[in-house]
Every structure is written in structure tokens, then in C-alpha cells.
């Protein structure tokens, strides 16, 4: 059976998100061949379409592409921030991988987000509530996973801040007063609070200084190796992809145009668009 595999962690087929009113030609008349994600007939926006991917436990998958190519849309659909227009997704850690997680109820989706997934957004404001302390932000995940012991919550939050190299004395301060790099570290602490098997990282280092970027990336790599979390890393920056990922998808105009081992893609890009991306990196 296709959907009872115990090898993949996440399996996505035909994932599509369209803004506006599509007609039957919208998907056919958009994409890299047309150099656009806007349907010429109805003006709807095909943010992503026909996305197929498999992610294996502990694997790090990169998604790279220019701005507007649909990278964030893909991870936000999988983290249930957005409602998909079409497509299915199976998650081996939920319902033995036999249920389309995109079709589950709001309550079930929240369960998955709180227990089985983590998300780190490009903008810390999307992932953190600045009216709460850093500890409170981390506590939210722990509380929702059924941990109602304040002492243990604070212990775990302290441990997480240590792991992500945030000064523990800032535990009760709002992240609003933190530097960008530290805000991202708090976001990461929150995202991994319940040891999820799956983590989404959307342009985590994009807003940061180069020197800070390197440190945060280093920390993410260390965490990944220690905890063995599977990750989908979204970035427009190939050097981030090179540093973190095993396998890479290249996106353009809402479609996947190329995929393969990261090293291979960087050394021998096949698609003209990927060639352009890689040559601009050098």
C-alpha cells in the first residue's frame, strides 16, 4: 500500500494554493513555462501547484527559489497556517500516515501543530507574541501539549534557552527587546519545545547580519544533529541551503522545477533557472 509506508515521515501530493477565482485553465496557463503565476484568464494567483514531495525521518530538505516562487506558501500550507486549494498530505506520525492531514478538523490540526510540528518564521512577530515573555511563548507550546506544571515548564524553557544560546536571565523578558538573532533563537526554542519530529524553517536568517546568520545556522545544524529532527528549510539563499540540507527542491513560479541531492544540484544544475541561481552564488 502506498500510504502505509514506514519509511517516509511526510508525503505530499498535488499540493496547490490559488488566491482568487481560478478556472479550469488556471494551473495549465501558469508556471515556469509562462514565467508567471498569474492566470491570464481570471487573474487568480497560483501561489503553488502540483507540489509533490517526500520527507524522511531526520532528513533536512531544502526549498530554494526566487522571492514569490511559492516557498513560504508550501510550508504554511503544511503547518496549517493556510488552507490548501487542492492536494493531500500524509504524516506518518499521525493516524499511521493514512489520513490526509489537510482535511482534519481545526482541533486535530492544532494538536499536530502543538505535539508533532514546529515552525520558525522569517519574521519573529509571526511566531512569537511580544506581549508575553520569552518563557511564556515557550510555555504556550508546553501547556498545549498538556504540561500544566509551572515549575517543570520553567525548567524546560530554561533548558531550551540554554540549548539555543539565549541568556537564561532573559527568560521573563519580552522578546520585543531582543536583537533579531536572539528573537530567532527564542522562536526556535518554542518550535522544538515538545521535541517534534518535524520542523519548518522559513527564511530564518534572512533578516540577520551575516555574522549572526552564521551562528544561528551553526546552532540549527547542531540541534538537528543532536535531536534528529526532520526539517524543511526554506530559503532564497543557496549558501543556507548548502550549509543545512541533504536534498533540495528548486521552485519557480509556484512549481518545482528541479530536485535532487543538494551537492548534486549545486555542482551540476540541470534546469536553466537553477543554473542561473547557482552561477549567481559563485
Amino acid at each position: 500500500m502506498t500510504n502505509t509506508s514506514d519509511t517516509w515521515l511526510l508525503k505530499v501530493e498535488g499540493l496547490t494554493k490559488i488566491y482568487g477565482e481560478p478556472n479550469e485553465n488556471s494551473v495549465r496557463l501558469t508556471g515556469p513555462l509562462f514565467g508567471s503565476n498569474i492566470c491570464p484568464e481570471t487573474d487568480c494567483i497560483v501561489a503553488c501547484a502540483d507540489i509533490n514531495l517526500e520527507l524522511f525521518p531526520g532528513e533536512v530538505l531544502g526549498v530554494v527559489g526566487e522571492s514569490g516562487s511559492g516557498k513560504s506558501t508550501v510550508v504554511r500550507l503544511l503547518y496549517f497556517d493556510l488552507e490548501s486549494t487542492a492536494g493531500v498530505a500524509y504524516f506518518s506520525r499521525y493516524g499511521n500516515g493514512t489520513l490526509n492531514i489537510l482535511n482534519e478538523s481545526g482541533q486535530k490540526k492544532r494538536y499536530m501543530r502543538n505535539h508533532l510540528m514546529g515552525m520558525v518564521y522569517q519574521n519573529p512577530k509571526d511566531g512569537l507574541n511580544f506581549r508575553f515573555s520569552s518563557g511564556g511563548n515557550i510555555a504556550e507550546k508546553l501547556l498545549m501539549a498538556g504540561n500544566f506544571n509551572v515549575g517543570r515548564i520553567r525548567e524546560r524553557a530554561t533548558e531550551l534557552l540554554e540549548q539555543t544560546e539565549v541568556p537564561v536571565r532573559r527568560l521573563d523578558d519580552s522578546p520585543a527587546s531582543f536583537s533579531g538573532g536572539m528573537q530567532q533563537r527564542v522562536q526556535i526554542s518554542k518550535a522544538i519545545a515538545n521535541n517534534p519530529p518535524l520542523l519548518f524553517l522559513d527564511e530564518v536568517t534572512t533578516g540577520l547580519d551575516v555574522s549572526v546568520q552564521a551562528k544561528v545556522l551553526d546552532m540549527i545544524r547542531t540541534l538537528q544533529q543532536e535531536l534528529g529532527i526532520a526539517m524543511i528549510v526554506v530559503s532564497h539563499d543557496l549558501s543556507v541551503i548548502r550549509m543545512l540540507t541533504d536534498r533540495t527542491l528548486v521552485m519557480k513560479n509556484g512549481r518545482i522545477v528541479e530536485q535532487g541531492l543538494t551537492d548534486q544540484i549545486l555542482q551540476d544544475p540541470q534546469h536553466p533557472y537553477t543554473q542561473l541561481l547557482v552561477s549567481s552564488l559563485l
Binding site: G106, N129, G135, G136, F148, V150
Partner: peptide, 18 residues
């Protein structure tokens, strides 16, 4: 409707911390 009371609980946690 969804019994989504996460933020309520966090606000109690915050009150305790403060």
C-alpha cells in the same frame, strides 16, 4: 468553538511569573 485556550493559559503563566 475549538476549545483553543492556549493564550488564556499563557496569560495565567505570565501573571504567575510577574
Amino acid at each position: 468553538g475549538e476549545a483553543d485556550y492556549a493564550r488564556m493559559w499563557v496569560s495565567l503563566y505570565e501573571a504567575f511569573v510577574r
